[in-house]
Design a protein around this nucleic acid. Structure first.
Lengths: 331, 331
DNA sequence: CTGTTAGCGCGTTCAG
DNA sequence: CTGAACGCGCTAACAG
């Protein structure tokens, strides 16, 4: 591993000169720049990012914190998109990303987590698709020792931004679309909610209330907790007496749909996220996946902004999500 | 951010003394050790991993390289397990992991990739669930500039180990189990393979040949390419005239099963990986997931060994995989 | 435009 | 058992 010193010697210039051409600084003549580049080439020199970080005191390291749910491969899919979007766009803006799982922190207090992050020279954090309302995370965000961007969880303070889609609008529209696709009278609407502590759940719930009101439907609300089995059970119990079912997540929509199949009755059902159903959706799917990826990319951009000292803010993605009509997909 | 220097001053000792208690070196009196620890506590000091790496010249950074397949959420699930297992056990042995995607490299040649890795002070790589037979990866491994552990792809050289399950045995046994569960005569066996360039595919294929021979069945082999749709099409065309179907992956088994449902006929079908089916498998699932996680954990341990200068080797996991009988799950 | 110098925070001799 | 001193590879003033 050749070092900058050897390059300097080889090119017959000073170390700092090499550093300058490396970092594209001005005030270097074309001539010496060429000499240096030649030397770099010859020695196969590659700058040491670790040393650079130490010296410049700008680590440029950020963490992405994922939450793993057992039992729902759908979440894995979404997480993977978050991860991919984050890592890719982080590289574009010159940030290194450290992947972490929230479960690694659950036994620790804020101080321990903070120390770990600091020891890793991490200066920014992206929280993916989880409420930052629970404890270690909440305090961590509130401490403001790190710049944070949270995806889908509206937290805002001087060093915390969030990016989310317009939950209200999205939930309203997917319900509307579902209703329009089925010409039935639809008087009794069953809504299966997500986890009630989640901010997105509340927004979606408000949307469905508005929807029921606008369309003059009688609304029944059941807590599905983003859980497929719960949704299935709820549908088993309630499906018969309702004529349309809206779920706050695709996973639950799958559960509801399965229940309807068991009961051998048909009701229009819709989910929310637009996850794939075992790869059957083909072209549409990519469009949907892009949404999660887009959210992550946006988050990285936002974090970069924060790290550069700009002000925190809320970023509402008004992206046209592609929704899947499950009745078309599950036979 | 307190530095080691401040701690030293605070404790009234020299920097090196602090360093020694930090790294658990001998030759420090209990008394001063206590003083130092107190100072560390008081200042909330946390060692800077970046600086330590630079100084000791041992980065302890490894990369995990994932491959993202579009259209198969099942792969995401497996990847997530790899990632989780890797990150968690890496932390246990004091290694930092950098998450990378293979697609980031596809446009680069080996040299560029090598440079990137070197600049990141990465000394070890874990390749997850992909053949290392394709080009940038292959040369990278052959160059032996990094210690690598490949999961499920049998590559072995002085600085490369691999960990895999016993593909032959596993494929044989899952087929056997499937046959035993259905008492039919089973004379004509349809086998849908994975991607033919993948080493695991070939081993599984050998197993099924042996199986067909042992049980005196007529074997038809079709290239499914690990693709759900292809498996569906193959089954649509071939399912009728066969009385048992074995697929080299769960994803394809799902495709096959769907085709059978369309055709409204029954055939025993089995997959391989044991992925979950949208969360319906409950308890079994975790057991299965553990396999991928276990593979990753094993890989980290193996990489640690390599980095410590020990010899490379092949690790065959003879783990009892829990297989899912799809006929029981998909209604 | 170029070279000298002083650190970044830490590990590691090697005298005391 | 302790501490001063040097260096890891690089950046960032500051001189020249």
């Amino acid at each position: 591993m050749a070092s900058i010193k050897e390059v300097a010697k080889h090119a017959g210039v000073a170390i700092s000169t090499v550093s300058k051409v490396l970092n594209n600084y001005p005030n270097v003549s074309e001539e010496t720049k060429e000499k240096v580049k030649a030397a770099i080439e010859e020695l196969g020199y590659v700058p040491n990012a670790v040393a650079a970080a130490l010296s410049s005191k700008k680590s440029g390291r950020i963490a992405i914190i994922l939450r793993l749910y057992n039992g729902t491969s759908a979440i894995d899919e979404v997480n993977m998109q978050y991860l991919y979007g984050t890592i890719n766009s982080a590289r574009d803006v010159g940030l290194d990303v450290v992947t972490l799982f929230y479960s690694m922190f659950e036994d620790n207090n804020v101080e321990e987590i903070t120390n770990y992050l600091l020891s890793q020279s991490i200066s920014g954090i992206i929280f993916c698709g989880m409420g930052v309302t629970e404890e270690p995370a909440r305090s961590l965000v509130n401490s403001q020792r790190f710049k944070v961007v949270s995806i889908d969880s509206p937290v805002l303070n001087e060093s915390t931004s969030y990016v989310t889609i317009d939950q209200f609008k999205a939930q309203y529209e997917v319900a509307k679309k579902t209703k329009e696709m089925d010409p039935g009278p639809h008087k009794k609407l069953l809504y299966i909610t997500g986890t009630m502590v989640s901010p997105v759940t509340l927004e979606r719930l408000e949307a469905i209330k508005q929807f029921a009101k606008d369309y003059d439907m009688e609304l029944t609300i059941k807590d599905g907790d983003f859980d497929e089995k719960k949704a299935r059970e709820i549908t088993l119990a309630e499906g018969e007496v309702h004529d349309m079912i809206v779920c706050a997540s695709d996973l639950m929509a799958i559960g509801a749909m399965r229940a309807l199949m068991d009961m051998d009755i048909f009701r229009p059902v819709c989910g929310f996220d637009g996850i794939t159903l075992m790869g059957y959706v083909g072209q549409q799917m990519n469009t949907v996946k892009q949404d999660f990826r887009l959210a992550a990319e946006t988050a990285v951009g936002e974090l970069k902004r924060l790290l550069d000292g700009e002000e925190s803010r809320a970023v509402i993605l008004d992206h046209e999500l592609v929704r899947l009509e499950y009745s078309d997909i599950i036979k």
